[in-house]
Nucleic acid binder design. Structure first.
Lengths: 104, 104
DNA sequence: GCAATAGATAAGTGTATGCTTATCTGAAAT
DNA sequence: ATTTCAGATAAGCATACACTTATCTATTGC
């Protein structure tokens, strides 16, 4: 919800790995756990933190729960970063990338 | 230096306030402390965390030390966020702003 | 109904974090 | 030289975090 929650949620590498995994589409908790050498409750707790920060949303489907990236979740981060636009790297390159992407 | 350090450093509101204060130019530790109801060592410790994350750099000047934003410090954050470009808000508006800014 | 499965919650543990007061280092000024 | 000021470091403390094992809830399938 707020900046602190988002920054804190993303400060943990395992949590970033979980979040990253959702980039390729929604997944359930078991799928999110794959490859991570961590207990089931630990994943569940990480998911709770990400949800609490507004970064992911969930949809119950039977006995599975499907988690997906909340499109607005990163907004606090973008908003905060916008004030540091002066320090954005490779502005021109980034702009080109954006333009190219938008043409598609 | 790495993503975790940057996210963690910025997860603390006091530390963001200190960092924000540097946006309007370099400052020494006493100036950074102004308005914060916090002890001098606490500020010193926050500065150490920000420096450790590569977010600020320092320049000793007599018995003062001038701290300033490290222009490359936010790069890990930008790089990480670049992968989530699909979720960037107001892409067109942001692009316009960038263009306007670059024309100046 | 009953066993199996997905996931959350409880309780406990070691470590990290943010803060404090007290002290140290080093440069400035008199 | 000695006091003064900027800032770092030391030590201690309370709380937060990330993790574990054990247990609970809810849904599915037989």
């Amino acid at each position: 919800m707020n900046e602190s929650d988002v920054f804190r949620a993303l400060s943990d590498p395992t949590r970033r790995a979980v979040f990253d995994r959702l980039l390729s589409g929604g997944k359930n908790a078991t799928e999110l756990r794959e490859g991570l050498e961590i207990s089931q409750p630990a994943v569940s707790q990480h998911i709770a933190v990400l949800r609490g920060a507004g970064l992911i949303s969930e949809e119950r489907a039977g006995r599975h729960t499907n988690y997906s990236v909340n499109p607005d979740g990163l907004k606090p981060l973008f908003d905060w970063l916008a004030r540091y636009r002066a320090f954005w790297p490779d502005r021109v390159e980034r702009l080109k990338t954006l333009l190219k992407e938008m043409d598609q």
